[in-house]
Design a protein around this nucleic acid. Structure first.
Lengths: 123, 123
DNA sequence: CGGTGATATGTCCGGTGAAACATATCGATT
DNA sequence: AATCGATATGTTTCACCGGACATATCACCG
């Protein structure tokens, strides 16, 4: 039961190059980092190992000119992480596209759903 | 180098249940089956084994009430496959959503692209 | 009736990505 | 200086997906 992402009806991935891409996983992670102020806490909430969460952050920071996440070690609470302005902007852009997608896709998705054999779980 | 899909800027996946989903791979496959009249030819074009192509078709036919692809064995040319009306409809719906997505996402995608470190290949 | 070419399926095997485990490091606070 | 919690990173193991093979089957046509 990895249960990575609950189950969004529409999953969007923005592919930049061969390696660089932004999907639901990284977006959710960004959001949770902003919310929790910690990479590990964010990863925990998503049910992924700290290692994985951290490596995703590493990738994101690598593909963008400016880092999306800044982190600090040590200190009273051990450390922490936060989104930079760029991180906030990237997350916002992704969410915006997601929302607009949901809007324009609604009709066709309804059509497709109606053609399905059975509804696995009343989503 | 599987190189399934060259590199679409926007990859869309419509998730129905836990197993049932429709993404670029299945959509492209449907399109190529319609075009070639053959599962194996379609798979070949996409650089995938016949087995894989066939299994994708199997899944699609399973999750929808009516099969999207009908196939026949034997005959002068050995056999063949074609899309049903439902198959055509599903493909059309998917492509429509894709197109609309590209439209509404253009601006934000441009923003994100501008924030990237380097352009891998002038896509 | 045998050749043909594509569908239909099964098995095996290897590579890949992720999980699991293991540390090392840092620095404000106490 | 000792503690604490989170960052930072390496290594090893493992499960799973997909590719490569291997066949069986079918029906039209020459």
């Amino acid at each position: 039961m990895t249960g990575a992402t609950p189950d969004a009806l529409l999953r969007l991935r923005i592919v930049f190059g061969t390696e660089a891409m932004l999907g639901p996983g990284k977006a959710d992670l960004l959001e949770l980092i902003a919310e929790t102020g910690s990479i590990s806490a964010a990863g925990r909430r998503m049910g992924m190992s700290y290692k994985r969460a951290w490596s995703l952050v590493e990738v994101m920071n690598a593909i963008f000119r400016a880092p999306l996440v800044v982190s600090s070690r040590g200190g009273a609470k051990g450390g922490g992480a936060a989104l930079t302005d760029e991180g906030v902007a990237v997350l916002a852009a992704y969410r915006r596209v997601e929302a607009q997608l949901a809007e324009v896709a609604a009709e066709d998705v309804a059509t497709l759903t109606a053609m399905l054999r059975d509804i696995p779980d009343g989503k």
